[in-house]
Amino acid sequence: MVEKTPILDFLTYAFLMLGILIVGFPIIYSLIAATLPLDEVSRVPMPLIPGDQFMVNIKEAWSRGDLGTQITNSIIMASGITLGKITVSMIGAFSIVYFDYKFRKIAFASVFCTLMLPVEVRILPTYEMAANVLSPLQVVWEFLRLDGIVSWFTQNDFSLTLNWSLLDSYTGLILPLVASATCTFLFRQFFLTVPEELCEAAKIDGASPMTFFRKILFPLSKTNIAALVVIEFVYGYNQYLWPLLVTTNPKMTTAVIGLQNLIPQADDLPEWNIALGAALLVMLPPVLVVLFMQRWFVKGLIEKEK
């Protein structure tokens, strides 16, 4: 760096290697376990030389855990959340920053406040909401005694029950996680740094707001969008509590939750080779996304928290 310190440099690299090894060890160890047959994986201590049973274990894990269905579900959920969040918050931020209207401040303030409410702190009421999304309308309906009014008008007994359940559906997995104050906030911050001249020029040329959005603002936001795609895909794919609550049908479960069934319990055969093989398969999609889009991801992660 500044001066020559050969011994310290050597130690630096040695410790760095050690650090990387510590971080990588759980994966390497799981990978070795996933290549061994049952009798070797349950030997104490487990051999550290990879075996040749990798494909066998993976196939077994794939069919036993129904991983095809579950990974598909996870990817649908993650993509839906990513796409939904980015669309909703981008046009929302556009509205807040580029238009002057009466409820602008209230709209932004009320979105901003949700920054503090992760799904984990409002589990039960959000679940009840998902079980019947129309329940607020029902409450309003009952509060206004509209049953009685309609009965009086039609001279018949009338009662209205509104029910639309999101349980065990992709909508239910995706929609409640789509609202995101962080994304809206990020786009707002970014839009505020876009030069004023661009909008002035667009207006002089007679561009409509949506043309300005499509032709100028959207292309300028590409880096931000790329970073958010990574962050939100990982977030969506790795969700645990929400899918656990909303899905009961095994065909709708996500992969991360399905893994629970493959962990050997006290009385089972200790088939850790299969459980870990499945775990490695399930973690693959988000890991690949992060590795391939690393450059945008690191930039976005740091920007996002500023």
Partner: peptide, 22 residues
């Protein structure tokens, strides 16, 4: 180095749990 260190971020907490359980 960054590439080799960054990917655990993408691993689901539950999967990290399974590996450490083993």
């Amino acid at each position: 180095v960054r590439t080799m260190l960054i990917w655990p971020y993408a691993v689901a907490p539950a999967i990290s749990g399974i590996m450490w359980l083993f």
